[in-house]
């Protein structure tokens, strides 16, 4: 069997700063992952539906507008409501460290702030996949 890690890279909310999301998408690809890129202005509902249809192992979201405490938990809640319990959810962007605990309690496995080497994120994902 030829198991590839599939990862959804999405930007929830309205901010258009996709430099980080796009750099990460490339880094994931260069690490051998299959990256489904959904682009800007995604609602939590759209992200979850895409995650299901694409059968991804990971949902990676980036947000720089400050709406993370609202939008990230919406995604994890909707995933749970759909019975999806084997998808790893991670986040990135400009997110105050004070919010990390709250987001973790809502099911976001890790937050990667500005300046995080791409390898750190990749290593975390590889070590924490829920589906083997």
């Amino acid at each position: 069997m030829d198991r590839k890690i599939r990862i959804l890279v999405a930007k929830p909310g309205l901010d258009g700063h996709d430099r980080g999301a796009k750099v990460m998408a490339r880094a994931f690809r260069d690490d051998g992952m299959e990256v489904v890129y959904t682009g800007l202005r995604q609602t939590p509902e759209q992200i979850v539906q895409a995650a299901i249809q694409e059968d991804v192992d990971v949902v990676a979201m980036s947000i720089l507008s400050g709406a993370h405490n609202h939008l990230f938990p919406r995604v994890t809640e909707l995933l749970a409501a759909k019975g999806v319990d084997d998808v790893l959810v991670v986040g990135g962007g400009v997110i105050p460290e004070d919010d990390y605990e709250f987001l973790k309690s809502k099911g976001v496995a890790a937050i990667f702030g500005p300046g995080t080497p791409t390898k750190t994120t990749i290593d975390f994902i590889r070590a924490n996949l829920k589906r083997k």
Binding site: K4, A25, R26, F28, R29, D30, D31, G32, M33, E34, V35, V36, Y37, T38, G39, Q42, E45, Q46, Q49, A50, Q53, E54, D55
Partner: peptide
């Protein structure tokens, strides 16, 4: 790398919530 960036979905994402559409 054997990896891929799959970006076609981007243009069809407005149908994501339509139960009669399945995009893969």
């Amino acid at each position: 790398s054997g990896g891929a960036i799959l970006g076609d979905r981007l243009r069809m994402q407005r149908h994501a919530l339509d139960e009669g559409v399945f995009i893969r």
